[in-house]
Design a binder for these strands. Structure first.
Lengths: 300, 300
DNA sequence: GGTATGAGCTAAATCGTTTTAGTGCAAGGA
DNA sequence: TCCTTGCACTAAAACGATTTAGCTCATACC
């Protein structure tokens, strides 16, 4: 049997209410220091742990935050999660991450989370004003890092390779377009990478025929970059000489590929903290440009 | 405000207890068909959804099952999860998966799951008798599939490549040893693959010097296989001619590598179902050898 | 002296279920 | 007629926390 407030109350010789006031440091309650001591000691000795289910029932929701990551993976997500977890833990909350595409109603009902963060939503609730550092601004920054690198390397005609479906595709596509327009470059040449290898070969061959002037391709993520590299190798296209390829959101295997994949490492930890504060309704902290960093290897 | 049993009871003109009996089909209760109808209709009309938090408080735990996957990934895990989810959903439960290494006490307390499945535990609770189809037996089957393929291809001296830390390493290592012993082969040559590339190169060079007679290497998972292939390519070792490499638990990128990675595809869905039944305390269903299947590509 | 005030507590309601112990009524048996 | 039995329900007690509304003193003020 778990230790309840009742047990602590009995041990400390006070009422359950008092125990609650002491342990939650409820504001607006005056308590004698000695009583506080006694209650804390009793809780400590008995090893009291609050029953989160009972608390959730009373409060109307669990001290949980749900992050919907859909089909996303990568180190950016990992650091985002780390930041989220840190800040949430500091305020007594826990993080649950789901990687399913569909919104699972049962799960949602079972968890009754205080907040749901959906990475498919470009503008997270709370980040409502334009230019306030929402998810979209964050991503825009990273996209710029990726493309700026290609520009610096002298590329002028740039392609953007992305999967046929999944989260964030529209947003990234739009941002790539806007960045190139902003910097006076021609619009990106779109390259959709199907799921199966033969189709990819066809798509890539077709792309090269239609866009012979493209010298560099920015990928939606490292996974797409790898699939692209495989197709290019199969067709005898040398990377980076004939065509440069840059990944996005450093994955697990890019470093081991030949040629090793140049990519963008995203450190979204501090953004995760902001998301957390936002989800909990805490005062926001000013946005500072997120560090996203090009990992220079061989492919671009 | 959410619709509660109280609302349903009022609408149907019965007591809360009756509503509970009807909606849960509580055994040992006799109810007039007409009453049942009325309650069900009321629940339907009002759009009643049970408050899982309240239920969890009453029942002592949530209708949740927690799966601790640690650092594991891959299609085997994916199918395991699918099977688990299916069977759990059929019994009104939901699955939560964590990919953290440390046991998160706060999360556990917040969820109060009915059952915790830890993939780091070789013998899951309930699978207590030897040879009854526990996780260990399951994995043994897949390991055998991987090694049997190498034997069939004529390899006699076999190495086993694995990471320095993580879940399941001890189990897999043991099983590889036992399989080779059982089939009269020499013991496996161990090859630990550190996390950074330079160290791997060193480890592989050292391994080749110490074990020149090894003609094939079975990897702990596809991820290790890829890292190994990268190191071998860097050292000019031709795969599969000089050294064959077979992965385990098909990953995302093996198909795109050059040479394409031969691996073992694990369909753990039906095992997931068994785990689910077991976790819920339902009668077990007999174990049937799990389909694990070699995906033959180029590397072995 | 009477009363407002505040300190330091407690009693009890509440969150929404599940479940145990009844309750009232009709039918059946002695 | 009286007692038992079964049917079809209901009342109320949990589950363990939070929170509102008191309650009892002692002090302070007029």
């Amino acid at each position: 049997m778990a230790v309840t407030m009742k047990d602590v109350a009995k041990a400390a010789g006070v009422s359950i209410s008092t125990v609650s006031f002491v342990l939650n440091q409820t504001p607006g309650q005056s308590l004698r220091p000695e009583t506080v001591q006694r209650v804390q000691a009793a809780a400590q000795t008995l090893g009291y742990t609050p029953n989160r289910i009972a608390r959730a029932l009373r409060e109307g929701s669990s001290r949980l935050v749900l992050l919907r990551a859909g089909n996303l993976r990568g180190s950016g997500l990992t650091s985002l999660i780390a930041g989220l977890q840190d800040e949430l833990a500091a305020h007594g909350h826990s993080l649950i991450v789901t990687y399913t595409e569909a919104g699972d109603d049962d799960l949602l009902a079972a968890l009754a989370p205080r907040h749901v963060l959906d990475l498919g939503q470009p503008r997270l609730p709370g980040f409502t004003k334009a230019g306030d550092g929402g998810w979209e601004v964050e991503m825009d920054h990273h996209t710029a890092t990726q493309l700026q690198y290609l520009l610096t390397k002298g590329h002028r005609r740039i392609g953007f390779a992305y999967p046929p479906d999944g989260l964030l595709i529209d947003m990234r596509t739009r941002q790539v377009q806007q960045f190139l327009t902003r910097t006076g470059m021609p619009a990106p040449a779109p390259l959709v990478l199907p799921h199966d290898q033969p189709s990819i070969l066809k798509a890539v061959a077709e792309f090269r025929r239609q866009h012979p002037d493209v010298t560099a391709i920015a990928a939606f993520s490292d996974h797409e970059a790898i699939r692209l590299l495989a197709a290019l190798a199969a067709q005898g296209v040398t990377v980076p000489d004939e065509l440069a390829v840059i990944g996005f959101d450093e994955g697990q295997v890019g470093a081991w590929w030949t040629p090793a994949l140049t990519t963008v490492k995203i450190d979204a930890a501090s953004y995760g903290r902001r998301m957390a504060r936002n989800a909990l309704g805490l005062p926001d902290q000013p946005w500072q440009g997120q560090p996203s960093q090009v990992i220079v290897r061989q492919s671009a």
